[in-house]
């Protein structure tokens, strides 16, 4: 039984890497703009289809697709912010930008169902060397493709952390997130910062997609379940906290993996939502977040 539990936790930890990446994207946008991006999951779906078609059409290994998808997705995210969101932020100065939430919801519905129309609803998969490969860690099985997903998460968190603390643009993003008025007074153009934040958060989906495609199905509706989990993770780890998103992602993965040993995965889903509501209620700043006055 213990063996099974450890195996479950291990598998969960590895898939948690992907969850963490998506939560990272969500957090970057929320941390700077206080905007909940309902299209985050859909953008992951877009990234997955990009990686899929790149692989199918050019034979490029999925792990190399970020070379193409990350810049393209950054441009896409940047454009979404400029064209769709900035005009709304200009309108709603003080109130919480609920109209942005509705806008991203509209975008998610549009993209998801367009993809359904274009690619149909069948489940696509990609077979590469890593797809079914496993390593043995003592008595436990480690899926190679999932292992790389965890590595990708850790590398991305490290890179983002370095970027946010050691570059001018990164520091500007953090400054705007903490207090956009003061940042503005210090000569930071917050509008441009938002564009970068949204661009980067979309670009991260390229990395998530690259690690997912070798072992997960590709389907227009794939984003929704990831999005709901990412909400839980973000609230669990702390809004706006990068390490929180990563740790939250891993924690959710482990919870799913362990509960999956006992019973159906769906039970884990119910439990996660219960945790989510309890967190919102008792500790809205999250486990690693900082309470704001």
């Amino acid at each position: 039984m213990t063996d099974l539990l450890i195996q479950g936790a291990l598998s969960g930890l590895l898939i948690g890497g992907v969850y963490g990446l998506i939560a990272l994207g969500l957090n970057l946008v929320f941390g700077t703009m206080r905007v909940v991006n309902f299209a985050q999951g859909t953008l992951l779906m877009v990234a997955m289809f990009m990686a899929y078609w790149l692989h199918v059409l050019t034979g490029l290994h999925p792990y190399l697709t970020p070379l193409v998808t990350v810049p393209v997705l950054f441009g896409l995210g940047y454009a979404i912010q400029v064209v769709l969101i900035t005009p709304l932020l200009a309108r709603e100065k003080t109130r919480e930008p609920m109209s942005v939430l509705l806008m991203t919801l509209g975008l998610a519905l549009l993209l998801e169902n367009l993809a359904l129309l274009l690619f149909r609803g069948d489940y696509k998969t990609v077979q590469v060397n890593q797809t079914n490969a496993v390593w043995f860690l003592g008595d436990y099985i480690v899926s190679v493709s999932r292992f790389w997903a965890l590595v990708a998460l850790l590398a991305t968190v490290a890179a983002l952390w370095a970027f946010l603390t050691h570059t001018d643009l990164g520091r500007a993003i953090r400054a705007v997130g903490q207090d956009r008025q003061v940042a503005r007074l210090l000569g930071i153009n917050d509008r441009v910062i938002y564009n970068y934040a949204f661009g980067i958060s979309t670009a991260v989906m390229g990395i998530a997609a690259a690690t997912l495609v070798p072992f997960y199905y590709i389907h227009p509706g794939v984003g929704t379940s990831f999005l709901l989990k990412a909400f839980v993770i973000v609230v669990l780890g702390g809004l706006g906290s990068m390490p929180g998103a990563a740790l939250g992602g891993l924690a959710v993965g482990v919870i799913e993996g362990v509960i999956g040993i006992w019973t159906q995965a769906a039970v884990a889903q119910i439990l996660l939502f219960a945790v989510f509501i309890a967190m919102l209620f008792f500790r809205p700043a999250g486990l690693l977040g900082v309470e704001r006055k």
Partner: peptide
């Protein structure tokens, strides 16, 4: 227009697009 009931969410394309337009232009 988009092929009857074979595609589940065809109407949601329009719903999404209209939602975006309304939020942007007719708040």
């Amino acid at each position: 227009a988009l092929g009857g009931s074979t595609i589940q969410g065809a109407h949601l394309i329009v719903y999404g697009a209209l939602l975006m337009l309304v939020v942007r232009f007719v708040p």
